[in-house]
């Protein structure tokens, strides 16, 4: 069934413009507060461990997603991170081309469930899975408690 009246003159069809305005402040949460203040104040990356499920979560959370038990055993991640997957971004979030392509990676630590997504400070050709990298942070005084306190990961 279709409409019996149908506009064939496209100039008679109209559109209506509008912005959906919104502005947000997200708290980092109970676990996030501890994770980000530790990163800001000591530069350490903390994970949360579930004894029952023998799992250590990064980013850390206040519950175990497997048994839904509370997590209170927090421990810093140790050793370098391993690059698991990479992408070379030639366009930014607005569709613009940055002067240099950006390298982004999924990073994992041994014995850790989860990991982080972050920038990789290596030339695109050297960005390969298996690369061992360390976080490079903003100087201690200028960190704010945010994921961008980590500037990038480098070999």
């Amino acid at each position: 069934m279709t409409f019996r009246d149908r506009t064939t003159n496209v100039d008679a069809l109209r559109s209506w413009r509008g912005d959906v305005e919104a502005d947000y402040i997200y708290t980092t949460g109970v676990a996030g507060e501890r994770f980000f203040t530790e990163l800001r104040d000591t530069g350490r990356i903390l994970a949360a461990h579930c004894e029952a499920c023998e799992r250590t979560y990064l980013p850390p959370r206040m519950y175990c997603e497997k048994c839904l038990g509370p997590l209170s055993d927090w421990r810093p991640v140790r050793g370098p991170a391993t690059v698991e997957a990479v992408t070379i971004a030639s366009v930014d979030a607005h569709g613009n081309r940055p002067p240099e392509p950006e390298v982004w990676a999924v990073l994992r630590w041994r014995g850790i469930h989860g990991g982080l997504v972050h920038r990789l400070a290596v030339p695109p050709k050297q960005a390969k899975p298996g690369l061992k990298v360390h976080p490079v942070l903003r100087p201690a005084g200028s960190r704010v408690g945010n994921i961008t306190d980590i500037l990038y990961f480098a070999p």
Binding site: D5, L13, R14, R17, D19, D23, R40
Partner: peptide, 25 residues
């Protein structure tokens, strides 16, 4: 407390369709 901020840029143009195009005209 530590927070992150975000301001989405969501811009729309809605087609008015048959009925509303005539209504607006």
């Amino acid at each position: 407390v530590t927070v992150t901020r975000y301001r989405p840029e969501a811009k729309f143009a809605w087609s008015a369709g048959e009925a509303m195009s005539r209504f607006l005209a």
